[in-house]
């Protein structure tokens, strides 16, 4: 269902890089990548996953998962843990801890605290652990400053360095105004996936482009990098991948 897109991104293996960042350009939706990665992680036995829901609530990922051929409810509270910020806010209104800062902690500090708690409880029992955060730009909407978001990401990067077999995957919609934050988050990891529009406009058979940049080796004065570009189409029950030029208008 989603194997081809994960293969193209190099995220189909059991052991993932420590920090992966997905940049989403304005006017495109890369949420399908989160659902694809989530499905792949849940299929690995004894691999733990923590889903931090900021853009969509948990039910969205459940529905998306059902269409892609996996049921998140089977794994919930076993190998899958969820921090559902949106549902919590909907349930508790203004008394929600995400809006109140009860311990004097900012939103991002509260989030780091919760992630660390989840990690402390679940990481020792799992062969590997993945933290999926969708989507960092929502933190701006909830009142976090650019500095706080950057600090949050540095905290996450530290977590990835502290633990072996821990992968942090973040996504940020840069909306053409958060480009600098996007660059700062991307430099924390070795893999950056950019979800981009088609340069020429819109096309019925292709939704956009994926530009996958991977740092292979950090030299003293330059990095050895690989860049790969593919086209994608999100269908109802799968995601298709094409090489540039493979698909076109037939006259």
């Amino acid at each position: 269902m989603a194997a081809s897109v994960l293969l193209a991104c190099g995220l189909n293996e059991q052991k993932l890089p420590g920090f992966v960042h997905i940049s989403e350009e304005s006017n495109v939706d890369g949420s399908f990548l989160i659902s694809c990665i989530l499905g792949q992680r849940l299929r690995i036995s004894n691999a733990g996953t923590l889903l931090v829901c900021l853009q969509h609530h948990y039910q969205h990922y459940f529905n998306a998962g059902m269409r892609l051929g996996y049921n998140t409810n089977i794994f919930l509270d076993k190998t899958l843990n969820v921090i559902d910020v949106l549902s919590d806010m909907a349930r508790h209104g203004l008394s929600s801890k995400w809006l109140r800062s009860p311990d004097g902690l900012t939103l991002t500090e509260q989030l780091v605290k919760d992630i660390r708690n989840q990690l402390a409880n679940n990481f020792p029992n799992r062969s590997s652990y993945t933290i999926l955060i969708d989507n960092l730009s929502i933190l701006f909407n909830l009142g976090a400053s650019k500095q706080q978001v950057q600090q949050f990401c540095l905290d996450l990067a530290d977590l990835a360095k502290e633990h072996d077999n821990l992968t942090v995957i973040t996504k940020l919609s840069n909306s053409d105004i958060h480009q600098l934050t996007d660059n700062n988050v991307a430099k924390l990891g070795h893999v950056r996936i950019q979800v981009l529009r088609l340069k020429s406009g819109v096309f019925r058979e292709v939704d956009g482009r994926l530009l996958i940049e991977r740092v292979l080796d950090e030299g003293s004065y330059a990095c050895e990098q690989s860049r790969k570009e593919v086209l994608y189409k999100v269908n109802d029950r799968n995601v298709k991948i094409f090489n540039p030029g493979e698909i076109g208008v037939k006259v």
Binding site: N183, K187, V215, E218, G219, S220, Y221, A222, C223
Partner: peptide, 13 residues
Amino acid sequence: LNRERIALKFIGS
């Protein structure tokens, strides 16, 4: 040129 990730290595070298 966006080489910030190797800043420390660069100067150290």
